[in-house]
Amino acid sequence: MDPWMEEHMQRTATTRVIPAMAMLLLSPFLCPAQTPDEKGRAIAEEADHRYNGYGDSTAQLRMILRNRQGQTSQRRLRVRSLEVADGTKSLCIFDSPADVKQTILLTHTHTTAPDDQWLYLPALKRVRRIAAQNRSGSFVSSEFSYEDIATHVMEKYTYRWLRDEACDGQDCHVIERRPIDSRDSGYKRQVVWLDKSEYRMLKVDYYDRKDSLLKTLTFKDYHKYLDQWWRPCDMNMVNHQNGKSSRLIWSDFAFRTGLTENDFNQANLATIR
């Protein structure tokens, strides 16, 4: 068994499968009436479990930013990510606009500690540390914040099941997630629609700190990779308060490409393309 699989299986076994199985087996006896909080968390865990475990992945991303007047501008970037013991490492390599070509954003998302983030500036070959606590900041001037783009960390939120309803023609769970530490998030809460068959996110409503609806993200064009991982190729974020929107068009997904932690080391950013 290759070391990656081994590590992944251990992790899955200890952190995900055993608690999930235990809950499934024991819940009818121990808590016949599952509370909305327990149900919400179980749904979120199942979605998290189905999304993760991919090892590493690469993809191309086209961002289309649209202002209130309907004018658009585009960015192209390549995204690489790697699951590691305490979180996820990811690279965003910019290919356009031309003046920021080869700028790289490196993020280490941690399950408990604050995230680490570096920005590589190609003109000076310089690596700048940036304060990653700014999770509510705009990601490359889009309507997505770093928080919306980053890998979701289960441990940083509480969950609650709200209702079941149809969404985009499918039977859906509707759950709510709230940040445990308000500094971790720019939102008071998020309402998430997940389809019951595959636990794929179909829609997220983001409520600002004053609890008014700020943004809605819709996911479309899901494809299944390596016969296991569903990924949306079209994500559209609409900001209801400023009338702007940002669309992410993903393509060329590849999984288990052999990326290692070396490909995500801040000391090597100058040699990464």
Binding site: D2, P3, T58, R78, A98, D99, K101, Q102, T257, G258, L259, T260, D263, R273
Partner: peptide
Amino acid sequence: PNAPRSYEPIDRISGY
């Protein structure tokens, strides 16, 4: 002993 990683082939001219 790791499987050799395959890099993306790139051939490009950029600049200013």
